[in-house]
Nucleic acid binder design. Sequence first.
DNA 1: GCTGGCACTCGATAGGCTTGAGTGCCAATG
DNA 2: CATTGGCACTCAAGCCTATCGAGTGCCAGC
Lengths: 337, 337
Amino acid sequence: MEALDERKAAILRAIVEQYVASAVPVGSATVTRTADLSVSAATVRNDMATLEREGFIAQPHTSAGRVPTDRGYRYYVDHLAGATLLAATERRRIAEFFTSATMAMDELLLQTSHLLARVSAHAAVVVGPQTEAVVVRGAQLVRLQPRVLLAVVILSNGSVEKQAVALAADASEQDVAIASARLAELLDGKRLAELRDVPTGPEDAAAALVRQSWDALQARRDPSHGEPLYVGGASHLAAEQEAFTGTTVSHLIELLEQHVVMASLLRELLGPGLTVRIGSENARADLQECSIVLAPYLVEGEPIGTVGVLGPTRMDYRKAQAAVTAISQQLGRQLSP
Amino acid sequence: MEALDERKAAILRAIVEQYVASAVPVGSATVTRTADLSVSAATVRNDMATLEREGFIAQPHTSAGRVPTDRGYRYYVDHLAGATLLAATERRRIAEFFTSATMAMDELLLQTSHLLARVSAHAAVVVGPQTEAVVVRGAQLVRLQPRVLLAVVILSNGSVEKQAVALAADASEQDVAIASARLAELLDGKRLAELRDVPTGPEDAAAALVRQSWDALQARRDPSHGEPLYVGGASHLAAEQEAFTGTTVSHLIELLEQHVVMASLLRELLGPGLTVRIGSENARADLQECSIVLAPYLVEGEPIGTVGVLGPTRMDYRKAQAAVTAISQQLGRQLSP
DNA sequence: GCTGGCACTCGATAGGCTTGAGTGCCAATG
DNA sequence: CATTGGCACTCAAGCCTATCGAGTGCCAGC
C-alpha cells in the first residue's frame, strides 16, 4: 500500500471522522469546511477522485458524497488515528472502578466487560485468563446426582473451576469423601499446567474416583471446552442497527451468546498488542460489516486474557482503541500480584 | 369483566391468533375465513364493533382491520388459550437436554435459559434458586489482594458462593489458614439459612478473620444483593424490533443486562403458578409493549426459583405458556433430590 | 338475528415533478 | 503544473397527486 501525500491523508481523515460522526456520505464541501486545508472544494474533489480510484473511499451512488471503504478505515487506523487518551471523565470512571473492585475474578471480568461497553459505546467482550499459571488453593468432590460428582477446584485468583464427573459405577459416600481429601492433597499448591501426569497411589475404590475426576479435569483443559467469556453491552448493537444491511443485529447478538464460537474467534485474532479487524478483513461472512478492536491483558509480561469491542465498521476507532488499551492495561495491573 | 358469548369469543380468538401470526390488522373477512363460524362477514362486523366498544380490540385507523388490545390478550389468555402441549420435537429437545445435563448448577441454569429462549422463540430469564435450603459442603478463604480475602462456599447442589472480605488489618498467611479451617468447620453440613447467630470461639487473630468473613457472607444474603440471574436469547428481541414503537430494543436488552433490576422485577411479579403480565399491566413504562410469562420451579413443593420469557405483547401466548410450564416443571424435577 | 349490498374512509402504493447536494470536467490563472 | 471558479450533469430524496383496495358502518330485506 502506497503512502498518501499529506493533503490526501488529511482529506481521508476528514472523511472518516465526519462520516463516523454523521453517518452521512461526505462531500467535498464538507471536507473543506471541516479540515483546515486552505484549498478549494474543486481541489479536494480531484484528490477524492484519486482516493476513490485507489480504493480508500467509495460513492454509494453517483451524486452522493464519499464513504470510507474498509481499506480507507484501515489506512486511517494505521496512519492517521494516532494514540489518543480517553476523555477525563472516562479515565476517572475506569480508575474508580478498578480501585473499588474487590470482587472475585469472574465477577470482576463481567463488570469489566460492562465498563468497556460503557466507555467504548459498543458491545464488549472479555475473555477470562487461562488458568494454567494459577495455583490451586483447594479442591473438593461434591455429589450432584447418584452417579455424578462435581469436582470443584478453587484457584488462588479467586476463580473456581467446576467439572462434572460421570461415574462408571456407584460410589459410597465414604469413598467420595476419601477421594475428595486425596484429590485436595494431590492438587493443593500445584499449578493447573502441571497436571499432566496421572496420579499414582493405592488402587482402591477411592483411587478410581480420583482418577476419574483427574481425567475429567484434564479434558476440561482442552481449548475446545472454551475459556470463560463475558459479554457486556450487547444493547449497543441494537442501537447501531442502521449500520447493518447484510446481516441482522439479531444474528450478531446470537453470535455473542455463543461463547464457544466467540472465544475461538477471539483466540485466532489475538496478536501481541492492540489488534483491529475491519469489516472484510474478518473471515466470517456475518462479520463483513463489523469491526473488532481487541488487546490482550498482561500479567508479568504474559498475556493471560483478552478484552475487545465489537461494532459496525463505521465506528470511532480512536475511541475504541483508547478504551480497549486503557481497560486492558488497567485490568492487567489489577490482576498482577 | 363480563364474559363474552361463544361467537364473540371465537371471533376474538381468531383475531388474536391471526394477528400474532401475521402482524397485520385482521378484518372481518379474514375472521370468517379463519374461524369456522358459519355466519357472514357482516355479522362478524357487528360483533367486532361490540368487541371494540368493550375494549377487547382496537382499530389502528379507520378502514383498517382490528388489533387486540391488552385487555383482548388478557381475555384470550384467561379464557381462550387453554393449556397446550408443545410440539413433539420441542418436547423431545427439552427431555434430551435434561437427561444429558450433568453440569453444575450455574451452568445448568444458563443453558436452561438458552433452551427456553429457543423453545419459546423469545428472550428468556432464569432466576437461580435461593440457596437457603442448601447444605454447605465446603468452605475456604483465599487471599485475593493483601487486604482482601475471598470466602468460597461450596454447596451441595454444585453451586459456589463467593464473597470478597475486606480486612480491617493485615493478616498473616498462617492466620488466614487457621481462619479458613475454622470457617470450614463452622459451616460444613449447615444450611445457609441457619447462619444467623454469630460464631463464638477463642478471641485470637484468626477469630477476627472468621468473624469478618461471617459478616460478609451474612451481608450477601441481603436480597438487594440479587439472586443469580441468567439471560438467554436476547437476540430474539432484536428480531422482534417492529413490535416496539415507544421504547427501543436497545433499551430492553440493556434492561435484561441489569440483573439486579430484572431480578427484583421478577420477584415482584412471581405468583404461585404460571403468571402472565401483558403490556400495560406492567408498571414500568419501558415494558408497556412487552409481555412477561413466568412460573416458579418447585423442589419438594417449594418454589426455589423462576423461569420466564420476555417478548412483545404480540406474542404466541399458548406457546410461551407451554414452554414456560414445561421448562419450569422439568427444571424442578431435575433439581429435586 | 342474520345477511347481502352499498357508500364511504383512508392508508398504502405508484408515478411524476422539483429540489439540491454532489460530482466530473474544463478552461483560465498564478 | 497544481489550483481554481464555473458549469453541466446525475440522481436520491422529498413532495404532490391519483389510484387502489381492504375494511368499515349502516340499512333494508329475509
